[in-house]
Every structure is written in structure tokens, then in C-alpha cells.
Design a binder for these strands. Structure first.
Lengths: 188, 188
DNA sequence: ATACTATTGAACAAAGTGTTCTATATCGTA
DNA sequence: TACGATATAGAACACTTTGTTCAATAGTAT
């Protein structure tokens, strides 16, 4: 990729993230992004069809990064112990606050990011727990359960952020697992 | 209230709901609302400061209605049986689809409505279960638990709608309670 | 050095926002 | 019914935003 293209793309992403960290997505105009990125109007539209596409690409980059690192791990699907849970890994990763992702998740923009987060998380939950029979043991439709687990984790993260991350990732993981674990107990 | 005001207000609400049932909130312009409501531009702004305020007032009316009827009931806070659960009542009420509320909840607009829904639901959950000690029995912070219960129910409703309401309200209530009940079991 | 391509900046039409104004219609009430 | 009060219509307004186009310029890769 042309060095100019890379620089422009980076500048736009950086400007967008900066604006998103203290403004609602819908309150940000393309004009502002252009101004902050210090990029020509036509240039912006040469890179991104609309503001929505810019958001989409940003989300994809962020979640590929976050969920990608979690996917690689060798998690034991243990709901009993928090220590090697993939959820703890995610929380720790989020806490590092790469790319200011927490700012994005905690502000008013969260609906949009959360949609992506949840959708990606579902795949992760499925790939981690669907095959090993854990989900089938519960007396509930599998898809309902996957949705429940993913949603609950996303809600847990939102709750954690709204509390200024006062609790440690370990404590939060314990809370979360305490709501999920009992559902997955073997029932005979 | 002046009959003219009432008629205008109604026309605007009706037009807004109609548009919302097949369009995203952010895709609807004031101009469209005016056109569908068949109301003068100045008249709209005499009633609602902005489109956002219109949405806010609509949400308040809808949730006062829905949650209001649930609040009045004499529910037994029984998590074991679905039959007299306040959640079953809510689902049945939603199924009647007053004011086309399901269209609003299931479309892309849901983020906005869901914020209101969840916020009101939290109060309901608190008032129903906070005092009787149920929540305190669980080994989790009370506020985390209330958030978890409310969020899970909202997610359950969304899930139900995304499935075209194939399941009965009774079945959905059973699913939901199966995820909540085990957490609230007495622990000694 | 050359051919290619990205960027710039200005100009543009189209659409939307929220305000202001006057004339008109409708209201509640005496 | 007649009155004053008030809600509405509708047009005009200045303003912002969007997405496109184009010719000139600057940077890249080989």
C-alpha cells in the first residue's frame, strides 16, 4: 500500500478515535474528522464511502485485535476456576486500553461498538464451548444460551466500565462466572 | 389541553411511530415526520424542541404504559414458578403489541428504546426483589445482580423478537428464569 | 526521468435544521 | 354569538452537512 494512503488512513482513524473519545458518533461530522485529521475532503471520500463505513472498518480492526488474541489461547473451558478463563483474558486485555477502546465502549457510542463486540463474542463462545457438550447439558436451547452468555459478558463489561473499573479483572470474572456457571452444571 | 394541540401531537407521534416501524431513527428526518403527520414545520418545532426530544417523550409514554401495568400487579416474586412472574406478564403485554412497540424494539432503533426499557426495568426489579432478601442471599454485589437480571431480560426479549416470537411467552419466561433462578438459590 | 496515483482545495447541488414572520383558522369562554 | 387568545400554515431565511467533480499539484515506485 502506498505510503501516502497509509498515512492518510492512519490520520483519519486517529482523528476519528480522538473525536469519539469525547463525542457521540452521531454528533461527529465528516467535516470535523477532516479538520482534525488535516486531510482534504476529497481524500476522505476516496478512502471511505461514508462515515458509517469508517466506523465499520474501525470496529473490525479493533475487534479482530481484541478477540483475535483471545482466540489463540489454550483455555480450558473451565467455568469453575476464573484463572484460566477466556473471559479473564479479555478483561485484562481491555484494561490495557489499547487504542483507547475503553473510551469508545464507555461513552455514548457504545451501542455501535457493542453490536460488533457481541457478535464477535458469540463466535468465540460458540467455538470454545459448543463442541464440548457443556452447552447441551443445560435444559435450554443452545442458541438462547450462547446469546445469554455473550450478552451477559458484554453487559458485565459495560457495568465494570460504568463503575470506573473499580473492581479487578479477577473479581469481575468471578462475578460473571457466578451467573453463568450454575446454568451449566451437569443435570444428570 | 387545547384540542388543536392534542391533534397535532397525536399526528406527530403516529407519524413518528409509523416511520420508525420500517426505518432507523437516524434515517428519519424532521421533514418526513412533518410530511407524514401533515403538519406545518413551525408547528412541529412549537411542540418539540428537536427530534431527540420527540423520541424521548415517545419512550416515556410507552414505558410508563408497559411498566406501569406491571408494577400494579401482585406478583409473588416467585422465581420457581413462571406462572405468576412479573416477567411473564411483561412478555404477554409486549405480545399484544400495543402502539406497535415490538416494531420499535426489533428494528435497528432498539438501542434507544432498550436504554429506556432497561433503565425502567431496573427500578421494577429493585422494587420487586430488593427488599425481600432474595438478592442479598447471592454471593454477588446487589447492583451487579440487579443489572444482570434486568439486562438478561432485555436481551431475552430481543432474542425472542429476533426469532419472530416463535416461542410462547410461557416458554420464554421459563428460559429466562432458568438462567436467573440458580443464582438466587439460598446458599446457607 | 518517467508514468502512475494520491492528495488538495475549491466549487457545487441537494438535503436538512431550526428560526422568524404574517395571515388564517380554531379554540375556550363570557 | 362574539370575543380575545392561541395554535397552525406556509413561506422565507441563514446555516450546516453531505457527497461529487475537477484541474492542479505533489509523492511514489521502478
Amino acid at each position: 500500500m502506498d505510503r501516502r494512503q497509509r498515512k492518510t488512513r492512519d490520520a483519519i482513524f486517529k482523528a476519528f478515535i480522538k473525536l469519539l473519545s469525547h463525542k457521540n458518533y452521531h454528533q461527529i461530522s465528516v467535516q470535523e474528522i477532516i479538520d482534525v485529521a488535516d486531510v482534504g475532503r476529497a481524500t476522505f471520500y476516496a478512502h471511505f464511502e461514508t462515515k458509517d463505513y469508517l466506523l465499520k472498518e474501525l470496529c473490525e480492526e479493533l475487534f479482530d485485535h481484541i478477540i483475535g488474541t483471545a482466540r489463540g489461547g489454550e483455555y480450558h473451558c473451565t467455568f469453575g476456576s476464573a484463572e484460566d478463563s477466556v473471559f479473564l483474558h479479555l478483561l485484562r486485555h481491555l484494561q490495557e486500553n489499547d487504542h483507547n477502546i475503553l473510551g469508545l465502549l464507555s461513552s455514548e457510542n457504545n451501542e455501535i461498538f457493542i453490536r460488533y463486540f457481541k457478535s464477535n463474542l458469540k463466535k468465540l463462545v460458540m467455538s470454545q464451548y459448543a463442541e464440548n457438550g457443556k452447552l447441551k447439558d443445560a435444559a435450554l436451547p443452545e442458541e438462547y444460551l450462547i446469546n445469554h452468555i455473550s450478552s451477559s459478558f458484554v453487559e458485565t463489561v459495560s457495568w465494570w466500565l460504568s463503575h470506573k473499573r473499580r473492581e479487578t479483572p479477577e473479581a469481575v470474572t468471578t462475578y460473571f462466572l457466578a451467573t453463568i456457571e450454575p446454568i451449566l452444571q451437569e443435570r444428570g
